Computed example of a mutant assay.
Amino acid sequence: MKSSGIGGQAVLEGIMMRNADKCAVAIRKPNQEIELKEMDCHGIFSNHKVLRTPFIRGAFNFIDSMVLGIKTLTYSATFFEEEAEEIKEKLGDKVTNKIFKEKAESVLIGFTVFVSIVIAVAVFMLLPFLLVDIINNFFNVTSPTLFAIIEGIIRVGIFIAYILLISKMKDIQRTFMYHGAEHKCINCIENGLPLTVENVMKSSKVHKRCGTSFLFIVMIISIIFFVFIRVDNTILKLVIRLLLIPVIAGVSYEFLKLAGRKDNRLVNVLSKPGLWMQKLTTSEPDESMAEVAIEAVEAVFDWEKFQKEETEAECRL
């Protein structure tokens, strides 16, 4: 069947699912009950038509996704904090609440997103460039193409090392399992199967529209873009790379949307590297995790109606 359009994110002991402006978070609480909450997921930029334009919308959608992701992660963490009330009364929270009042949460989330983007750009964009620049001092890499390829290889290597490192953490291991459950639910629906625990468990844990694939596509497309940077000044190279980040994000976003809609050989081949990377960020979930995923999906998406409409469309053809 065609893409359902739904997407999601694994959170702490749960899953967030989003369908257009609908968003729901399902959490497996310590007492094993499932807590379901519908949340506002209107993006910061959702009301600006120009920012929904192809190749422009990608960077802004990425920021919106980060804001929603941090918001839902923060919500899920409240179920597992020890002495939660005491934590909320920390001095930092008191000061923030006093200064920003009802906007305190939005300010903190915005600051977190900003810091996260700065760290990501520094580690995955600037660090590889600086490392290649150091290598260049010893081996005199004069070819811009070779420079960009070596930089890209280092960038991918850092990304893989980062994933492998955090995957050693127990909480992250379980989050990767919920990530697998999220994908399995979407694949179950898009393959025309009834959304049951049994069908979810036998569905694939990788999906072409995954955020992991997006990040990997960004790295690959960055290599292609940076090949065409033909300047000798190091500072100017860095500036151009920074200016190209929104463009690269926009192109990567459009490819990911295309991959979700199309099922031809070329798109499938180009999607393979991202699917391979998902083997590092998804794990096989257990049935209790599949139940959580189903709760989140059914809160935002009428999968029976979707499958019925798709079946009728196929019959008309």
Rank of each mutant, 00 (worst) to 15 (best):
A148L: 07
A148N: 07
A148D: 07
A148T: 05
A148W: 03
I149N: 09
I149A: 13
I149G: 04
I150L: 15
I150R: 06
E151W: 03
E151Q: 14
E151M: 12
G152Q: 05
G152Y: 03
I153P: 00
I153M: 13
I153D: 01
R155N: 12
R155M: 10
V156N: 07
V156Y: 06
V156W: 02
V156Q: 04
V156F: 11
G157V: 11
G157R: 06
G157Y: 08
I158N: 01
I158M: 07
F159G: 00
F159W: 09
F159E: 00
F159M: 15
F159H: 01
F159K: 04
I160W: 08
I160V: 15
A161C: 08
A161D: 09
A161Y: 10
A161P: 05
Y162M: 13
Y162N: 09
Y162G: 10
I163W: 01
I163F: 11
I163C: 10
I163G: 04
I163S: 04
I163R: 05
L164F: 14
L164C: 11
L165R: 05
L165K: 09
L165I: 13
L165H: 09
I166P: 00
I166T: 11
I166Y: 04
I166F: 11
S167M: 12
S167L: 10
S167N: 14
S167W: 03
S167A: 14
K168I: 07
M169D: 14
M169P: 09
M169G: 14
K170C: 07
K170E: 15
K170M: 07
D171R: 12
D171A: 12
D171V: 04
D171C: 07
Q173P: 03
R174D: 08
R174I: 07
R174C: 08
R174Y: 11
T175I: 12
T175C: 10
T175K: 06
F176Q: 00
F176T: 03
F176D: 00
F176G: 02
F176I: 06
M177W: 01
M177I: 02
